[in-house]
Amino acid sequence: MMTDTQSTPPAEDLREETAAEAPEVAEHDRTAELENQLAEAKQQTLYAQAEIQNVRRRAEKDVADARAYAATNFARDVLSVNDNLERALSSIPAELREDERVKGLIAGIEATGRELVNVFQRNGLTRIEAMGQPLDPNRHQAMIEVPSDAEPGTIVQEMQSGWMIRDRLLRPSLVGVAKKPA
């Protein structure tokens, strides 16, 4: 049979065992907490890197757009010069075009118009096709409806040419659209 002294450890021995286990538990909790903080810091770093990359991409896109579309206001202003040149050429009567005294002048004005169109093309400006096309509200602005045998909604008159600068609308075409005759 066991004696009392053998069956229960003295209180002093219990205190020593508990004191020895307490630092191990505290150290384990502290390690887990530090691992959680490290994982959270890694996650925040990844988010920050992703945000920096997004900002860099946006800045690069903004710079590319600025380069591509920097001349937009200038191009819009020069289009009025092109319009006036086209109106001047279209207003010359056929009999005057045959007159030897003004043939050179007319040829020079036409050459100037062709060069202006070439400059537009080199800088990404393209004329919008309108005549005979269905009305596209993204490219054309209907000004009037014209009774016509053409399919309703088809452009039958162009009052002012429309232009694109690369993939953006610079100026819509001002057009007349066919409607069924009354």
Rank of each mutant, 00 (worst) to 15 (best):
T5E: 14
S7T: 10
P10T: 06
P10Q: 12
D13G: 01
L14P: 02
T18L: 13
T18W: 03
P23W: 00
P23E: 02
E24H: 05
E24W: 04
V25E: 04
E27G: 01
H28P: 00
H28W: 05
H28R: 12
A32I: 06
L34V: 00
L34W: 00
N36G: 04
L38N: 01
Q43D: 05
Q43M: 04
Q43G: 01
Y47V: 06
I52P: 00
V55N: 09
R58K: 13
A59E: 10
K61L: 14
D62V: 06
D65H: 12
Y69F: 15
N73I: 13
F74H: 13
V78E: 10
V78G: 02
L85A: 09
S90W: 03
I92H: 01
A94H: 07
E95G: 06
E98G: 03
D99E: 10
R101Q: 07
K103Q: 15
G104D: 06
A111W: 02
T112S: 13
T112I: 11
T112A: 15
R114A: 13
V117A: 15
F120N: 10
F120Q: 08
R122L: 12
R127Y: 02
E129I: 03
G132A: 12
P134S: 11
I144H: 09
A150P: 05
E151K: 15
I155Y: 07
I155S: 09
V156T: 07
V156N: 02
E158D: 02
E158V: 15
Q160E: 14
W163Y: 15
M164L: 12
R168Y: 02
L169Y: 01
L170M: 07
S173T: 02
S173E: 00
V175G: 03
G176A: 05
G176W: 01
V177D: 05
A182I: 02
